[in-house]
Design a protein around this nucleic acid. Structure first.
Lengths: 223, 223
DNA sequence: AAGAATTATGAAAAGTTCTTCATTATTTGG
DNA sequence: CCAAATAATGAAGAACTTTTCATAATTCTT
């Protein structure tokens, strides 16, 4: 993910950046609201973290301005205040969630992932690391913007992998959800389709996401 | 559409039924809340009209019970009361809209269509008379439950027709939105695809929706 | 380390969809 | 009503997708 951290206190922003990097996400730090808006002009972020109290423009103001522009990038407001009225104010300004300082990175990261999940469901999208699938027009893209041209079967296969990311999928399950069969066919259609899918994905992303678990099935892993 | 009219005053319910029928929609009348619930068990309606004041179970109660069952069929509450608090109460009970008596049929019908539109957008669906398209799984169904198996091009074509229902679509527009071309090709791909789409639709629905406007293009009409 | 089971792969075959083409039918304006 | 323009149609051909098959590579068991 590409994350914008708008936070004037560097002792908060910098550890966040490092933690996100360890999780495999790139982030940029904006020292104030104005700078945040500038960066938003140039870069398309996956999520925006806004400190409520910032020099020049508050996080709440930035949030409102982003929404007024019609930008629906997920926004998470960070704040020291705890009143419920603030939460309401945040949501009214168009923020997706609200977290009170101090918070652990794990706590923040869980929220970020939850917001992304919600956002994707709303947009009929699925994503996995560098891959994003649009379920409506059935287009698959790499995060570098390159299209991954998949056939119907390959698309269904990838969709099933992403929905079940991190868990082993048996060939039975695969046949059922992609081919609509209640048995494993005598031929090796699954294997062939997996092969072709793997090839197309690697050509664009350079990564090997689909692992084989000998005697058990396949699994989609993070890298 | 299949409409449930839950209204104890027959002098209100019956004219509604007739008006809907003239517009080509079938409706059933329930004389009280309990009867309404019973009918909801058996029939799948496209929209439910609930009178607020009804014997046995009020419209508001029926509304709540329907939602508790997890049924998300659009609900429109009809009422004589005008207070804003009622509107809030209605929406909180899970109703989609609220209309105050007395109302003209046109007024009601406009609301009904608006609610349906919203509902379809939320569900990534499109409909036209007997046809309903699911944009997510790309399945097309007739209201009698029969599947209409379309190829990709035919699907895109139908989608474009339904989105632009009632207006003439030139071949230029068609080529652009279905074939991604900025010109009309030398061949007659459009005509051929239109032919095949027409055939499949008529086979299942028995209706001729796609009309030709000589020298201008095509138009999707209501019947 | 060898044999059996499982998985991967290239290429051919089968099945679909999409496009083209030649011909027929329909519509419109004069 | 006729000729020209436009649209419809069946069938062939091209392009693409899906499946099958034979063979190679890998993994597991002992």
């Amino acid at each position: 993910m590409e994350i914008l951290i708008a936070e004037d206190e560097i002792q908060i922003a910098e550890p966040l950046r490092k933690n996100f990097l360890e999780e495999g996400h790139h982030s940029m730090i904006a020292a104030d609201g104005q700078q945040a808006l500038q960066m938003l002009e140039k870069v398309k972020f996956d999520i925006i973290l806004l400190d409520w109290k910032m020099p020049k423009l508050s996080g709440l103001e930035v949030c409102r301005m982003v929404r007024e522009k019609g930008d629906s990038t997920p926004i998470l407001l960070l704040t020291a205040l705890t009143q419920i009225s603030n939460k309401v104010e945040a949501l009214n300004a168009g923020a997706d969630d609200y977290i009170t300082k101090p918070f652990s990175f794990d706590e923040l990261y869980a929220r970020v992932k939850a917001i992304r999940r919600r956002f994707n469901i709303e947009h009929d999208a699925l994503e996995h690391d560098l891959i994003s699938m649009n379920l409506l027009d059935r287009k698959v893209q790499s995060k570098n913007g390159k299209l991954i041209e998949l056939t119907e079967k390959e698309f269904d296969l990838l969709k099933h992998f992403i929905i079940n990311k991190g868990i082993i999928i048996s060939k039975e399950k695969l046949c059922q959800s992609v081919w609509g069969l209640n048995f494993v066919p005598q031929t090796n259609v699954c294997e062939v389709t997996v092969k072709n899918l793997r090839k197309k994905i690697e050509e664009v992303t350079g990564k090997k996401y689909v692992k084989t678990i000998y005697g058990e099935g396949y699994i989609l892993i993070d890298e």
